[in-house]
Design a protein around this nucleic acid. Sequence first.
RNA 1: GGUCCCAUCGUCUAGUGGUUAGGACGCUGGCCUCUCACGCCGGAAGCCGGGGUUCAACUCCCCGUGGGACUACCA
Length: 469
Amino acid sequence: MNTPIKTRFAPSPTGYLHIGGARTALFNWLFARRHGGIFLLRIEDTDQIRSTEESTQAILDAMTWLGLTWDEGPFFQAERVGIHRQMVEKLVDEGKAYWCTCTQDELEAKRKTALAEGRKPKYDGTCRERHLSPTPGAVVRFRCPDGGTTRMQDLIKGNILFQNEELDDLIIQRADGYPTYNFAVVIDDAQMGITHVIRGDDHVNNTPRQILLYEALGFPVPFFAHVPMILGSDKARLSKRHGATSVMAYRDMGYLPEALVNYLVRLGWSHGDQEIFTGDELTSLFDLDAVGKSPAVFNPEKLLWLNQHYIRSYPADRLMEALQPLWPAASEPSQEALVRGVARDLQSRSRTLLELIDGAAFYFADEVAYDPKAAEKFLTQVSAVLLEAVLEGLPHLMDYSKEGIEAFLRALAESRQAKLKDIAQPLRVALTGKTVSPGIDEVMVTLGRERTLDRISRALSFLRSTSSA
RNA sequence: GGUCCCAUCGUCUAGUGGUUAGGACGCUGGCCUCUCACGCCGGAAGCCGGGGUUCAACUCCCCGUGGGACUACCA
């Protein structure tokens, strides 16, 4: 029996969950789901200065919003320093690590001269054979092999070979007694039974040191899979200056989690020509062998397209739920019927929830604000006749529904030797103030007969007041 | 500078020695139509360059070039 697969997402709580981290988490989550494994969450908070609880909460919230539920954790790395220190001690006892009292200033100076002389800026091994005892302010370094090679088997990039002489004696425990990333990550991943380490390829160069650490500690080395970076439009690593990078910012801008997940998964992974995936499809189709090796540029336009797609696909109740946090009117019980109608009208023509909300303003206006150009073109003497006819006929319409209204308008137009559009556009301006809106029959249904009539008579008086001037 | 990674339309990608190089976003012509959106039909747009290997290279190898990452007592 094979041991079950276990993956993890291990963010550091020094900010919000960003797009790149979300994709890494998503790949880990999908890989675990796909293979019936376990997905674990670990917060890497050993940087006591930069880590905050707010960040931890923000990351948890974002993952929950995306639906990336974890099976174990969250574990907090800082709570495990006792274990980390034991391991440090063990390595020191075994002669695989040593105390070092070189100061940061000395190191910096040596780095500079080495660079200036064209040498590698690696640690020169000053304390390597001094067999120092623990002293306050001292750090512990791992004794790297002087020669040989370390092979990394990467599930995405293939085999990568590193010369050990390129690696230097990295610090595994800081002066403050906390472990450094490369050390803590190895111990935690090993002890938590992580079988597949899926992470950004900015970690590729860390991996050989980590493998050496696994071996020194006597732990089995896991599989690695390094996912290419997400870049901005200028092909530099995606950052704030490329626009929003926070997952939660996308929620606040009216994006749906399904859209973001679908977009992110296709950034680097593919399944033939398929673009749209349900959650079930993803968890049954996703695998590492279909993840590409090259970095991908984040394309907001395509995300928008997907978001539109998912907005259209939402059932009414789900749409209302998604709308509520962004739209006060959606939480107002007295408005519910109207809001539902509005959402239904706008659902198929909004790329984001915010677009939908913006487009909804005219439904709620006490007095429709006419776009000057629209009014000039459509609120004319000619159309006044048609609008008056609607005003007269509408109260007697038996079937006040989308179908009934359309039939009514068509018949009315025909009786006047006019086209439907001759009446639809003036009506649209009268009811919405604009030349672009949902179908005029839909608008009339949602507005209700009363409001519709009011707006028509108001448009008529507006029309008379301007044309008589 | 050193180490490592990467390279198909503007962008995301399919492609695994023989294809008219396919799809999607965006752009664009048209149809549908009460406007918009959707949908449908069509178009422009790509294998970074040079050497090999081979009967045959987008595909395999090498060298360039370009881009990216790492090079911390951050993760």
